[in-house]
Design a binder for these strands. Structure first.
Lengths: 191, 191
DNA sequence: TACATTTGGAACAAAATCGTCGAATAAAAC
DNA sequence: GTTTTATTCGACGATTTTGTTCCAAATGTA
């Protein structure tokens, strides 16, 4: 059963990467956390970067589910967009792999981060644009260009992440900033 | 001013040790966090272990102040003892240097940990015994042997720490366990 | 200027780490 | 039962990292 062991490794690696960051995590650490020998990792992954890539992909998938759950709870487009942004940004701050990846100078240059980001971006743009269109129909939002506005919001969120990551604040402070930041986002777009 | 730079290093080292643990923290990490060159550390400390020792000593001192503040807030002996135990155990779980030191097999053998622990133990025994005596005078506690009971309580607390550290629980869960554990402590001793 | 204190760049031996290889073991297929 | 395939692990070499030392430069001080 390749699926089981591989999954085990990905989960163990996720915990370890989150704790120590990419650079400080050794293949031995991951193997130990997964309860396997180091060289077994190389049966499933080519190298450390590939393990990290798998972890990030796995967590991105989880994030999608979390977002869908959060969205399904609310009926108005405003609430949907708010809960989407809240989940998305809190998750970004708390679960540290993507955060670490961007924070770490060592990883900033890694091209696969950009790749994953780009892949994921498409999904996000579509999601946001869909909500905006719904909001326009319901007259909650102005009649803007949905796709363009979605790009704008996503860009804004990403831009907003940077000071949250570079400034070393507590999680609670970050959440407070996120919430007030999200509120600000809606002043310009609501009818 | 030797004091300033040395203090800077101790604080920076404390943050870094807390984050990565003793083994994963490099002298470069500490130097970078302190804004100094790596070899400058060796002007103040003989080696990495000595830096760690200084950090632990500094944090122990801080803990004493924190405990004194917590105690001074309450008037009854029961409350004093409760707040002492609460501060002491929460601090132990949260601020991770001592915890890491005990958790990490690599450090378990280090004798200076035992040394610091022993030094600190005297202070704690005295403090607890003082509160117990006060409680006895005020008829809050039974007329027990204060010194012996203090030993008992301290031993119990240390024993209680172990499952909190080995089991990987969240901080909130730990706090809940600590609080219910502390409550349990008082059923046998109160009048 | 003379002296003590403090810093950091360069160097190096020892340790850690990544990734490979081949053998051992378990599972599956025949 | 034998052959084939999937999976794990110990040991190893090449390379990088890390702890520590040494010394010259910088900075403060009288």
């Amino acid at each position: 059963m390749s699926g089981n062991s591989k999954q085990q490794i990905i989960v163990a690696a996720g915990i370890t990467f989150e704790r120590y960051g990419f650079k400080k995590t050794t293949m031995d650490d991951i193997a130990y956390a997964a309860g396997k020998g180091k060289s077994s990792l190389y049966y499933y992954f080519k190298n450390k970067e590939e393990v990290f890539e798998a972890v990030v992909a796995y967590e991105a998938e989880n994030l999608v589910n979390e977002i869908n759950t959060a969205i399904s709870g609310s009926s108005s487009a405003v609430e949907k967009l708010k809960s989407y942004m809240s989940v998305r940004m809190k998750r970004f701050v708390k679960r540290g792999n993507l955060a670490t990846a961007l924070n770490d100078n060592f990883l900033a240059t890694f091209s696969f981060i950009e790749k994953i980001r780009d892949n994921y971006r498409g999904f996000e743009i579509e999601l946001i644009a869909g909500i905006i269109n719904e909001g326009i129909e319901k007259k909650e939002f102005k009649a803007v260009n949905a796709a363009f506005t979605a790009e704008l919001i996503l860009t804004g969120m990403i831009g907003f992440e940077v000071p949250l990551l570079t400034k070393s604040t507590t999680f609670e402070e970050s959440v407070a900033k996120i919430n007030s930041g999200i509120e600000m986002f809606f002043y310009g777009i609501c009818t």
